[in-house]
Nucleic acid binder design. Structure first.
Length: 262
DNA sequence: GTTCTAGAAC
DNA sequence: GTTCTAGAAC
């Protein structure tokens, strides 16, 4: 296959009319941002929030988190704020969808890759499970592992911009020489810290962990239902959703075009 | 970012 | 012999 373009996100962010994007790519947009389905979701739910390229913002200035933080401080704060506001909406949409499909909610992570592969700053908004067919190798996994350090929570960045200037100057360098080695660290479960020799073993374990959580949550729900009896509603008795597919695959009608990934 | 695949690891 | 990783992609 031909090498995918690493500037696809920028091309989306430069659209004058985001609604012209295929429904399989676009989730929502605002005056300042757009949210797209990650083309290769690494969790059951995985979206990217991008700032649109509108004056006085420029494509080079929005290349990545580092270029944004290197630019005008107030402008950087503003961009981060737009992304954060939209991400909150996206999280809420994810939670609604979690309830619809699985009848329980679990955490949603929001953050940036310290050293991104694709051009144009993008905020990852993904469910805390890391269960997905597109989660294939150590680099994928460690890039989202919450304790690894490569995935930088949005809340950290929000703290950086208000921290002492000397600390901000140091931390906002985002040196690849510091962050890239983190991707090569051993595989361990982000929930229980257990070590794994190979990705397939870790993936099975992550699925088991999620299944256990789902079972617990459903038991909790059942207990609650018994405490507060209601008129029995016809909602799928014995029809558990089975999560063999990530969210995106189900929603996006396999569009062969040029999706987005990060 | 992904796909493909040689050869390392088991 | 099969599974799995990790580097090249003209």
């Amino acid at each position: 296959m031909a090498p995918p373009t690493l500037t696809i996100l920028r091309s989306y962010a430069q659209r004058t009319d985001p609604s012209s994007l295929p429904a399989s790519v676009l989730l929502t947009y605002t005056e300042r941002t757009l949210t797209i389905f990650d083309a290769f979701p690494k969790s059951i739910f995985h979206f990217l929030v991008l700032p649109r390229v509108l004056p006085p913002l420029t494509a080079p200035g929005l290349a990545n988190l580092k270029t944004v933080l290197k630019g005008d401080k107030e402008r950087a704060k503003e961009v981060i704020r737009w992304l954060a506001e939209d991400a909150k909406q996206v999280r809420s949409m994810i939670e609604d969808e979690m309830m619809k499909r699985y009848h329980f909610k679990w955490d949603v992570w929001m953050g940036f890759h310290a050293v991104p592969s694709m051009e144009h700053i993008h905020l990852h908004v993904l469910s805390a499970d890391l269960c997905s067919p597109a989660m294939k190798n150590k680099k994928h996994y460690n890039s989202f592992h919450p304790a690894r350090g490569f995935f930088i929570p949005l809340s950290d960045v929000q703290e950086w911009v208000d921290a002492e200037p000397s600390y901000f100057a140091m931390i906002s360098q985002l040196k690849p020489s510091h962050y890239e080695p983190l991707l090569k660290e051993p595989l361990d479960c982000w929930r229980c810290n257990k070590d794994f020799k190979a990705m397939p073993l870790l993936k099975s374990h992550l699925q088991e962990e999620w299944d256990v959580q789902a079972k617990r949550e459903k038991a909790k729900l059942e207990k609650k239902r018994k405490r507060t009896p209601e008129e029995p509603k016809e909602h799928g008795a014995g029809t558990d959703v089975h999560e063999d597919e990530p969210d995106q695959k189900r929603r996006a009608k396999s569009h062969s075009g040029s999706p987005s990934a990060s």
